[in-house]
Design a protein around this nucleic acid. Structure first.
Length: 902
RNA sequence: GGGCGAUUAGCUCAGUUGGUCUAGAGCGCCUGCCUUACAAGCAGGAUGUCGGGAGUUCAAGUCUCUCAUCGCCCACCA
């Protein structure tokens, strides 16, 4: 036991000390216990850097894993890292560019070597940063999605799905990222509203002098036009169907076709059909057996079919083509046009709809069972309303484009023979067998890699060793920890990841991956903007932790992040500060000082004769004062409420419960009362017992708080008791609510005392009396029992109310020069002989009289309403009547006091 | 276009099944205090037509409808 605590808590030192200790003692590994509990950490990108979203997310996970660890469950938090295909490849390519090289200069193998080197050197910084936050995953289980074990599972899954015809290859219009020169999934496209132009182009009709006007926002694609469509019901154009028109700036003649896709209301009712460059046009093309002419290169420049415009970037080409069209009088009109344009989530450049061969997963068969488990409540979402979003997506699901034209990722295990046949296999040998080829046949493996999420969706299984060698179906971990208990993640990846994990785990393990999903709030700045690097409104959490302490940051985040609501935190951009963190910092300091105080009192109690063994005798019920019973009752009801809040993922409530209990009940009231109780008793044994009693509650407070504030609670847990360094609060037993200690009556009695003390303080304060000046106080009333209770707590009231003398009922007389008030039938007089400001006091009492009169009026009105008295429940009416009686009594007494004021 | 969420004190937000709500907390503001753990503190105080309107009910911040404003998600017509 430390003999003394510093005046305030300094986090940095103790954070480092205890984290090292936790690691050394291996406290994050599961221990045998009652029940199991597990959480999968959403693997951060290997390129990731800690931001406030991570702070919130990981604090939540840590809170739950720590709590369950303390509840005795064998608990594992599975950590890991995502290889993040595009993000990582881009990063390494940027580095290469500084050397004036591209990935093609190095070649695939050499390039991948560079990526791995980069990964070993810079990757996974975020996992180290998580330690600063105090996160307690079982680090020994850290999995990287490109680890051999994960790759084995990915390959096996691909082959199984391929063999089941759930994976297929197809020519489709995909979202093409010209920067990455790869396909991306629908989920990786972000639509932005753009102000552009609608061009009305003239398509001259064959054999006629007239033209059709076709509206388009993308004139640069016109070399790919293969038709002009009109609606079959659109009588304006009926006569033209079947005729041909000339594509502007070219010699090509294309047919006028009838298709419902053309909307007579939109533009001119005529739409150009460019199957290779628009997903809708592609469908029209299929219906009418039209050729798809690709006029754009993978880097979004125009190809040789664009004639003079060949080699120009698509937007430059648009500009130049429009000029030429104007020159040749082929433009009827140009209008402002605001529409949504898809941008690449990663590269930020506009997505190009691009016709190419890609690999897809058939989603419908996988989605059906995945939808059911959520609808049936097997998997619960918090907040619940996300199930609607989930249902909507799952019922309108589209096939998932999983191929990426990148190098960094899991290579698609598909082998092509010379004859164009192909199959998925573990290796060439197996592929030859499957294709029925002889062993000398030359095969070529698919060049593409898989979407990053194709490994992420197996996360619940690969983290537990599933198919680590490509075969192992059942592992100890899978049997023990699947399904996991909780997934904490952002709602932004509900489709990317959450839905797909549910599908994959159901498909391959016939189990749900997790029971509860907690969708975190988005962290925003004071203006409601999402925190982002580019806006400069996202301070480095490590700096903030260094300034306030990890516990303070954790507590503040939890306190501010209600379930289902965004979190707003004022950010001071100038010094990159988050002032809200004061809340947690001040709270930590409060807890620290409460410990300091208790330690001091304990030393005082012990130092009298050094008899420590008396501690072992607990304070008996008979010895307990009303205040002791009250704090014990409050403590146990807080435990109960905390359990409840956490079970329902109301973490904000959890933090508020503890904040209020510790600050208000324990520190403001109980510790102040304890001072009085210690002072008034000369009994050494009693003082030691009382100090023991308070410390026991304090010990429970630390434990309740530990999941959210791990460091300071560990520090204090060791500071206030004689404990071995190797012991840890993180594996101590969580306090349990004992209903026997919860006593509503005791709490109500104490609330009376609080009201009376409050009133004395208020009277003193109204006359600006400093705390150092003690005044005589008299209390009168008719209710003998109530006065007796107060009499019992005379010393406490006297101490808290700073009374020089305190007379309660009996022979006490109403003092003359006094401030007065009435609380629940008890009249309180604070003597202020000679110093009373009669006019001020009169005004105060008059105000009170009118307040009471108003309330009495409205309550009487309510009670005389027959609808109320006949329909409201009995106890509500009784409560109203009691309230009325009490107010009338107060009114009477206040009026008397007013009259006798001289 | 479809869906979801929000709107409560100057700011950030609590407020579970409608009745102890005479609507709370933190920050900020005002007053008095270095009262023997804590000035990162203690005690006290002021501030709200609970977004507007209508309805259900004896009773609405809470339930229903409607309007307004803001935010998010999905889809996307050239």
């Amino acid at each position: 036991m430390d003999t003394q605590l510093a005046k305030s808590y300094s986090p940095t030192e103790s954070e480092q000390k205890w984290y090292v200790n936790w690691i050394n003692e291996n406290y994050f590994a599961p221990r045998d216990g009652a029940g199991v509990y597990s959480i999968l950490m959403p693997p951060p990108n290997v390129t990731g850097i800690l931001h406030f979203g991570h702070i919130l997310n990981n604090t939540l996970q840590d809170l739950y894993i720590r709590r369950n660890r303390m509840k005795g469950a064998s608990s594992v938090w599975f950590p890991g890292l995502d290889h993040a295909g595009i993000a990582t490849q881009t990063k390494v390519e940027q580095d290469l560019r500084k050397e004036g090289k591209t990935r093609h200069d190095l070649g695939r193998e050499e390039f991948l070597k560079r990526v791995w080197e980069w990964k070993d050197k810079y990757g996974g910084v975020i996992l180290k940063q998580l330690r600063t936050l105090g996160a307690s995953p079982d680090w020994d289980r850290t999995l990287f999605t490109m680890d051999e074990s994960a790759s084995n599972a990915v390959r096996e899954v691909f082959i199984r799905l391929f063999d089941e015809d759930l994976i297929y290859r197809g020519k489709r219009i995909v979202n093409w990222s010209p920067l990455a020169q790869s396909a991306v999934s629908d989920e990786e496209v972000i639509f932005k509203e753009m102000k552009e132009y609608m061009y009305f182009l003239r398509y001259y009709i064959e054999g006629m002098d007239s033209y059709m006007v076709v509206a388009t926002a993308r004139p640069e694609t016109l070399f790919g036009d293969v038709a002009v469509a009109v609606n079959p019901k659109d009588t304006r154009y009926t006569a033209l169907i079947g005729k041909k028109v000339r594509v502007p700036l070219s010699d090509r003649m294309v047919p006028i076709i009838a298709d419902d896709y053309a909307d007579p209301e939109f533009g001119t009712g005529c739409v150009k059909i460019t199957p290779a460059h628009d997903p809708n046009d592609y469908q029209v093309g299929l219906r009418h057996n039209l050729e798809a002419i690709n006029t754009i290169n993978p880097d979004a420049t125009l190809n040789e079919l664009a004639g003079d415009f060949k080699g120009l970037d698509r937007f430059e080409a648009r500009k130049q083509m429009v000029e030429l069209l104007k020159e040749r009088l082929l433009i009827e009109n140009i209008q402002d046009y605001t529409h949504n344009v898809g941008y690449s989530e990663r590269g930020g450049e506009p997505i190009e709809p691009y016709l190419s061969d890609q690999w897809f997963v058939k989603m419908a068969p996988l989605a059906e069972p995945a939808l059911k488990v959520v609808q049936d409540g097997e998997i619960k979402f918090y907040p619940e309303h996300w199930t609607k979003t989930y249902e909507h997506w799952m019922t309108n699901i589209r096939d998932w484009c999983i191929s990426r034209q990148l190098w960094w990722g899991h290579r698609i295990p598909v082998y092509y023979a010379d004859n164009g046949e192909f199959t998925a296999a573990h290796n060439e040998e197996e592929a030859r067998k499957k294709l029925g080829l002889n062993e000398n046949a030359v095969l070529k493996q698919d060049e593409d890699v898989l979407d990053t999420w194709f490994s992420s969706w197996l996360w619940p299984m690969t983290t537990m060793g599933w198919l680590a060698d490509g075969k192992e179906e059942v592992t100890e971990e899978l049997q023990k920890y699947l399904p996991t208990n909780l997934l904490v993640t952002g709602p932004d990846i509900i489709f990317f990841w959450v839905a797909r994990m549910i599908m994959a785990t159901l498909k391959f393990k016939q189990q749900i991956p997790f029971k509860d999903v907690y969708f975190t709030s988005t962290v925003r700045d004071g203006k409601g903007r999402k925190m982002s690097k580019s806006l400069g409104n996202s301070p480095d959490p490590l700096d903030v932790i260094a300034k306030y302490g990890a516990d303070a940051v954790r507590f503040t985040m939890i306190y501010l992040a209600p379930l289902g609501q965004d979190v707003r935190m004022e950010v001071n951009e100038k010094d990159q500060d988050v002032p809200a963190m004061d809340l947690g910092r001040n709270f930590a300091n409060k807890i620290w000082n409460a410990g300091r105080f208790l330690l001091m009192k304990r030393r005082e109690a012990v130092s009298v004769d050094g008899e420590t063994d008396l501690y072992e005798t607990p304070l008996s019920k008979e010895q307990m004062t009303a205040a002791d019973k009250w704090i014990l009752s409050r403590f146990h009801s807080t435990i109960r409420d905390v359990d409840n809040a956490l079970e329902n993922y109301k973490v904000t409530e959890y933090s508020k419960l503890l904040y209020d209990f510790i600050w208000k009940d324990f520190c403001d009231w109980y510790l102040e009362i304890m001072k009085a109780q210690m002072n008034e008793s000369g009994d050494i044994a009693y003082r030691q017992q009382l100090s023991r009693f308070a410390l026991d509650i304090y010990d429970g407070i630390l434990k309740l708080l530990h999941p959210v504030m791990p460091f300071i609670t560990e520090e204090l847990w060791h500071a206030v008791e004689d404990r071995d360094v190797n012991e840890s609060i993180s594996v101590s037993d969580a306090p349990e609510a004992n209903e026997e200690n919860i006593d509503r009556k005791v709490e109500e009695n104490f609330e009376n005392l609080q009201l009376i003390v409050d009133e004395i303080r208020r009277l003193r304060s109204s006359a600006n009396i400093p705390p150092s000046e003690k005044l005589p106080v008299v209390m009168l009333g008719e209710d003998i029992d109530a006065l007796n209770v107060l009499h019992f707590q005379k010393n406490t009231i006297s101490s808290l109310g700073r009374c020089s003398t305190l007379e309660i009922g009996g022979k006490a007389e109403r003092p003359v020069q006094a401030l007065s008030s009435v609380v629940r039938g008890v009249e309180i007089f604070v003597s202020l002989a000679g110093k009373i400001d009669i006019e001020k006091e009169r005004a105060r009492l008059l105000k009170e009289v009118s307040r009471l009169e108003n309330l009495i009026g409205s309550t009487e009105k309510k009670l005389s309403n027959e609808g109320f008295t006949s329909k409201a429940p009995e106890q509500v009416i009784t409560a109203e009547r009691e309230k009325l009686a009490s107010m009338k009594d107060s009114l009477l007494k206040t009026q008397e006091n007013l009259a006798s004021l001289k």
